[in-house]
């Protein structure tokens, strides 16, 4: 146990000394990794914020409730009361049949057609705004409202919500794909940079093996180097992402004013920072392991 601790202490010392000896080349390697991780991270942030902002934008998904032809003003009042009390309804507007036909008449091409009708065919209606724009929530609300008395038809104006959702799904898939691709790239970067270190220290490795070093002993400093390189790269990516969010937030007020809302992008959650750093470290470690192992397996019994 004590020997094990001594060996690790030494490996960390060797790794630190290596980084200290050529700080700039290490810095740039780490920056390359940071930028590589930054891309999928930004996409992830964009998806997250879009999803969140989707619920805040004024153009919420709507449900139209068309009342039965024989519904009276009292029925309409009852439905209005139900909507007011409903937890998932953000707001509602009553559109009377008279208002509806007036709106219709305003469209020039069909004004004559509307005038030619013997009587107003349109029903009274409620335009309901839901709190959530998730398709499932909207559909649940629609189905519930359709069962209310004197509601002839509940129609979901979900195209917009569905489109946003599909768009977000695509972006999410894209982020995942990009993340996988760059995980591969990260592995390759670690494999190459650590592989180069292995080649540079080939003689040292050979001597160590000749005097009784196990594969584990030879790998250890390189594994620490890969781990450190990946983790620092991941941390840099998180830092850069935070800077990007901050920068966008400074530009946002102009755009937000147009939409009459207050939009602020949320930065990365600290859980994300930790998992990105750990994952990048793990990939660096794995790349280093592969690089050293390839060298050791080639080496023969010595």
């Amino acid at each position: 146990m004590k020997a094990w601790i001594n060996q690790h202490r030494r490996a960390i010392g060797v790794t630190a000394a290596q980084a200290w000896r050529s700080p700039f080349s290490h810095l740039f390697q780490v920056l390359v990794i940071g930028v590589a991780i930054l891309l999928p991270l930004l996409l992830h942030l964009a998806v997250q914020n879009l999803q969140r902002l989707g619920g805040n934008l004024p153009a919420d998904a709507r449900i139209a409730l068309y009342l039965a032809g024989d519904a009276t003003g009292k029925d309409a009042d009852q439905i209005a009361a139900r909507l007011k009390a409903h937890p998932t309804v953000a707001g509602h507007r009553f559109v009377s049949r008279e208002e509806a036909i007036k709106d219709l008449r305003r469209i020039h091409e069909i004004a004559d057609l509307v005038d030619a009708l013997p009587k107003n065919p349109l029903p009274d209606a409620f335009i309901v705004r839901a709190r959530s724009s998730a398709p499932d929530d909207l559909e649940a609300l629609r189905r519930e409202a359709a069962k209310w008395p004197k509601v002839a038809l509940a129609q979901l104006d979900a195209a917009w919500a569905a489109r946003l959702d599909a768009g977000l799904d695509l972006a999410r898939a894209l982020a995942a794909g990009l993340a996988a691709l760059l995980a591969g790239a990260l592995l390759a970067i670690a494999f190459n940079t650590i592989g180069l270190q292995v080649v540079n220290r080939r003689e040292e490795i050979e001597v160590c093996r000749l005097i009784g070093a196990t594969h584990g002993f030879i790998r250890r400093p390189f594994l620490y180097a890969g781990l450190l390189q990946g983790a620092v790269g991941g941390a840099i990516a998180c830092g850069l992402a935070a800077l990007c969010v901050e920068w966008v937030n400074r530009q946002l007020p102009g755009l937000a004013a147009l939409y009459e809302t207050n939009i602020v992008l949320l930065p990365l959650a600290w859980q994300d920072v930790i998992s990105v750093t750990c994952f990048a470290g793990l990939l660096g470690w794995l790349g280093a392991w592969l690089a050293v192992s390839r060298h050791l397996w080639r080496g023969g019994p010595a």
Binding site: K2, A3, W4, I5, N6, Q7, R10, V207, C208, I211, G212, A213, T214, F217
Partner: peptide
């Protein structure tokens, strides 16, 4: 010192 490092000798 290298062979002693390899066996994890106390410094």
């Amino acid at each position: 010192q290298l062979p002693l490092d390899i066996t994890g000798f106390p410094p």
